[in-house]
């Protein structure tokens, strides 16, 4: 069988990809917002309060004593390796990420449903998603190695996913402009 050439970009394909990744991104940024709201500086883990590992709780959760203690260390890692600016930066970036993820879902639904779209706005918002990933990546680069290990790779994956979608939107827009001219 030979590979056959298709006729340009199908907006429905672009739409469903935008919806799928929009939903996943919404969950991702929603969780980041929750994380930054919960892990606050000056809380018990940062004050080196020892872990409270009751035997009944360990049984219930299926944890060892060491795992229970490491859960506190996990919070200490997040707090100790975050520069002062990191938490507010991540709160802003995840809030922006949530906004643009909702836009991505809405745009995707419109693309698949065959509704009229403002392509300039669409290009702007998908470029904004790439920009949010880029800013998150830069923010993570400027923290310590412990946070970099947590953030850099998933952020890079999101960056390339959004860059791909943005490139598809750009080529779709160009082909529409050429058709109309």
């Amino acid at each position: 069988m030979t590979v056959q050439q298709g006729n340009g970009i199908n907006p429905k394909w672009l739409g469903i990809i935008a919806v799928l990744f929009g939903i996943l991104l919404l969950a991702n940024h929603g969780n980041e917002l929750l994380k930054q709201s919960v892990l606050t500086p000056g809380s018990a883990a940062e004050l080196f309060v020892p872990a409270d590992c009751r035997v009944d709780e360990l049984d219930e959760e299926g944890l060892s004593q060491q795992e229970c203690e490491l859960m506190v260390s996990n919070v200490q890692i997040a707090l100790a390796s975050s520069p002062q600016w990191f938490r507010p930066a991540m709160l802003w970036l995840s809030a922006l990420g949530i906004f643009f993820a909702i836009f991505s879902i809405g745009t995707g639904i419109a693309f698949v449903g065959g509704r009229k779209m403002n392509l300039t706005m669409t290009k702007f918002f998908f470029a904004a998603l790439v920009a949010v990933d880029l800013c998150t990546f830069i923010a993570a680069v400027n923290t310590g190695p412990l946070l970099r290990a947590q953030y850099l790779w998933p952020t890079l994956l999101w960056f390339f996913i959004h860059l791909t979608i943005f490139a598809v939107v750009m080529s779709y827009s160009t082909s529409i402009e050429q058709e109309n001219s």
């Binding site: 872990a51 409270d52 590992c53 859960m71 506190v72």
Partner: peptide, 28 residues
């Protein structure tokens, strides 16, 4: 959207310290 948020947030929150008088990270 809600189901995916529940999945990702539950994986993260179960790694938070067990609840006690001092450790209230799991409450919210």
């Amino acid at each position: 959207a809600a189901v995916f948020f529940l999945f990702v947030s539950s994986w993260w929150m179960l790694a938070l310290p067990l609840p006690s008088e001092n450790f209230t990270y799991r409450e919210l």
